[in-house]
């Protein structure tokens, strides 16, 4: 399929992108790697009037050790994150999950910022940054603001970003051990039916893929862990209060069940990486 017509502008800087975005935020879309947006446009499920290509804005592709955290530029491609020495050493969960997104071709083009800003509950990286208690940095006409991952994912394809804002950096706490990622799908290239990102260092955080209309945490499990429950008992509460959808690939009931199995496996695996 061929997208409906649009106007294409290539931004040379964040400021330029934000300027164009502010002209008509509702019918203007930012294009980074394009691997969330272009498929929708080809099926004409998205028909923006203006496409602002931020793919070449300099200075937004990096993985940096920033002392107490790791800072990742929003335009960092999945493949670059996957093989980043800094990420592998300090946030191996993120490097690992970046290597699980889609397929190699998708990972060569897709960016972490694009993936997070798209806000798809079936995507892997949102769960990883949620488990890592990330801070997301957004620039906009009202300046820069920091958004906690807990506040960022609002609903189906809906984030805390305002239509005139651009995600520019992701900051994640270091978690060199005590992590795991479980992804369950029918074909490797597909979105997860259910996924689990777990980080046990510090306060345990367990985030779930595709267990609701947005990326969310397994609060029941986290509470049980905080109360000293073992992985099996904590995992049994993984779907507490959650209402995943039923679709072609899985019913809600099955997703709830899978969450308990995958969370248990993630917790066991994460504990093992702690040695």
């Amino acid at each position: 399929m061929i997208p409906a017509s649009f106007e294409y502008r290539r931004a040379g800087s964040v400021e330029e992108a934000l300027g164009w975005l502010s002209e008509d935020p509702d019918s203007t879309k930012l294009l980074a790697g394009g691997h969330s947006l272009l498929p929708l446009m080809k099926l004409r499920l998205a028909t923006p009037g203006v496409l602002v290509d931020v793919g070449r804005v300099p200075g937004l592709s990096y993985v940096r050790d920033a002392g107490d955290h790791v800072a990742i530029g929003a335009l960092t491609r999945h493949r670059d994150l996957e093989i980043s020495e800094v990420a592998r050493a300090s946030v191996p969960l993120l490097a690992h999950v970046a290597g699980q997104v889609g397929d190699p071709q998708v990972r060569h083009r897709g960016t972490i910022g694009g993936s997070l800003a798209h806000g798809d509950p079936a995507s892997d990286l949102p769960a990883a940054v949620l488990a890592l208690d990330a801070t997301l940095v957004a620039d906009g006409p009202r300046g820069r603001r920091e958004i906690a991952a807990d506040d960022f994912f609002r609903g189906f394809l809906e984030t805390a970003l305002e239509p005139d804002e651009m995600l520019t950096e992701i900051r994640v706490r270091k978690a060199p051990s005590g992590w795991a990622f479980q992804k369950f799908n029918r074909r490797a290239q597909d979105w997860a039916i259910v996924g689990v990102a777990a980080v046990l260092d510090g306060d345990p955080r367990v985030a779930l893929v595709n267990m609701g209309s947005t990326t969310l945490r397994a609060r029941g499990t986290e509470e049980a862990l905080a109360a000293g429950a073992d992985p099996t008992d904590a995992a049994a509460r993984a779907a507490d209060g959650l209402e995943p959808s039923s679709d072609l690939h899985a019913s809600a009931e099955y997703r709830r069940h899978l969450a308990t199995v995958l969370v248990r496996r993630a917790l066991v695996e994460a504990a093992a990486t702690r040695g």
Partner: peptide, 15 residues
């Protein structure tokens, strides 16, 4: 694209 595999159906010529 610059030596890396990409799916050319999911890139604009402009990109």
């Amino acid at each position: 694209l610059d030596g890396e595999s990409v799916k050319s159906c999911t890139l604009l010529a402009a990109q």
